[in-house]
Amino acid sequence: MSDPTTIPVLLLKTRSQPHDAYEEYFSTSQDGNRSFQPLFVPVLEHRPNAENLAVLDELLKSGGLAAKYGGMIFTSQRAVEAWTDVVKRMEQQSQGDNASTTGTGVNGVDTSNVRNEITGTDGTSSVLVDSDFAFPLYTVGPATSRALQTLVAASSSLPNNSSPFGRLQPAVVGEHTGNGAALAEYILSHYNTLHAQKEYTFYDAPRLPFIPLLGPARGERLEKDDARIRKKGLLFLVGEQRRDIIPKTLMDPEGKLDAHDRIEVNEMEVYKTEVMESFREDFQTRLDAFTAEGQNLVVVVVFSPQGCESMLRSLGFIDKSSTLTERGRNRWSPEHTKEAFRSVVVTIGPTTRDHLVQHYAFEPDVCAAKPSAQGVGDGLNEFLKSKALI
């Protein structure tokens, strides 16, 4: 029989690599005499978009990423993992080139002080002014932020400045926003401020004759429409299924923003997502095992609308026609709370909660205030206390 003081937490997701914030949180979290046991039940199968990943490879290898974009946007762990694969593959190639030379950097060139270059309006090559500014990586929450921070730290620590990614001076920002709408508003403020600072530095700022202009190789003042200080777009790495709140807010097709505040967004699909055929069987197997072990309470954390139907049917909350059952409606009534097996359904945020309500008339027990392990844990503990379950 299972330990009655340990509550299983079924995380309906694939374990994130190299570390998973939810696993770490629930492995160490305790409340009173209760502890949690995190278990993963993968719902979605992610397949890389090989064609677009090859485009990313070439952009990073050629320096076209910095020439075309002023930053990147990440709102999913899968997108971060796809980008990490691109960066690591490029760094391995660079390290291989470096190893084939003696006392020099990549391809025989000392890269310790490499700065990106771009062709100016007159056809001459000048130092890219972006090399004096950070390359922002906008993230929506702690999971994506943490994974990107790990990647940035690893790339920046490589010898001889040999990482094409590290040379961009990437800076991870936006973790505090928590959702796409809030991230979009933050990007509008942050990125436009960054661009204004660039314009001031290389166009507006007063200069004394004996102080050379930073950035352009010849030291001249740039024109305001010079390609080197134009506002570049942002590259948004996405999956096959995504919401469009961020591109709509930044590009503003309805014309609510001033023209100079709008930000071009290029979405690039780096993975496709499908519900795993084995999910329902895997989920049901877990539930059957808990019942056989005498477990009387389990927590189910739902991360996306995909797989919700199979989850609800396995729990007995909807019937074969996907109609809410009496048990699904009144599962916390005195009659049903006496059952030997009970489940608490937690959603990562309002999108998944609204899907359950609109499609199945099912109201989850908890909707996390923030899409994070801490947000899920706080909401869950509050609910468990309200039902005198801890």
Rank of each mutant, 00 (worst) to 15 (best):
M251T: 12
L183N: 04
N381S: 07
L188T: 12
D365M: 12
E264D: 14
P42D: 02
A134H: 10
Y25A: 14
R207C: 03
N49L: 03
R218L: 12
V298G: 08
F279I: 05
I229E: 08
S322T: 12
S94L: 02
K232I: 01
L128N: 12
Y191R: 04
L60T: 09
K88S: 09
E58P: 03
D378A: 13
H195Y: 10
E281C: 05
V301C: 14
A361C: 01
T177R: 12
P334Y: 06
S156I: 01
V152R: 00
D288G: 02
G215C: 12
A171C: 11
P216Y: 00
D354Q: 15
R167C: 04
G255C: 01
K68E: 15
L11G: 07
F36D: 11
P247W: 03
E277G: 10
S157L: 07
F202K: 01
V140R: 00
L356H: 08
R243Y: 03
K88M: 13
G316M: 02
Q197G: 11
D85L: 09
D261Y: 09
K232Q: 14
V344K: 02
N161W: 03
Q93R: 15
H355V: 07
H176Q: 15
R34W: 07
T101Q: 12
F202P: 00
V357Y: 03
I318L: 10
R331W: 02
D110S: 11
A79F: 00
S304L: 10
F236T: 09
S94D: 11
D252P: 13
R242F: 03
L208A: 13
P4Y: 06
L213F: 03
G103T: 04
S321K: 15
Q37C: 13
L315G: 04
S126H: 13
V299D: 05
G307M: 06
L312E: 09
C367P: 02
L287S: 08
M268L: 15
F303I: 03
R167H: 04
A369W: 08
Q95V: 14
Q93P: 05
S333P: 08
G70E: 02
I7C: 13
V140T: 04
S27Y: 01
P206S: 01
A54V: 06
V301R: 09
Y360E: 10
T249A: 14
Q241A: 10
M251R: 04
V345A: 08
R286V: 08
S125A: 09
L384Y: 01
F40Y: 11
N49V: 13
Y360H: 14
F303V: 09
A54M: 05
K68N: 15
H355E: 11
K61C: 05
A154V: 00
S126K: 09
T201H: 14
F303R: 10
D282W: 04
F40R: 05
V172I: 04
R329I: 03
T14N: 13
S372A: 05
V346I: 05
D354G: 09
K68Y: 00
G255N: 02
H19T: 12
K232G: 04
K272E: 15
F317Y: 15
F290L: 15
E382I: 13
D110V: 06
D252M: 11
I245H: 04
L324R: 08
S145M: 00
H195F: 05
A184V: 09
R34H: 09
P38M: 04
D252V: 02
T28G: 06
K231T: 07
S343V: 13
R47N: 10
N179S: 02
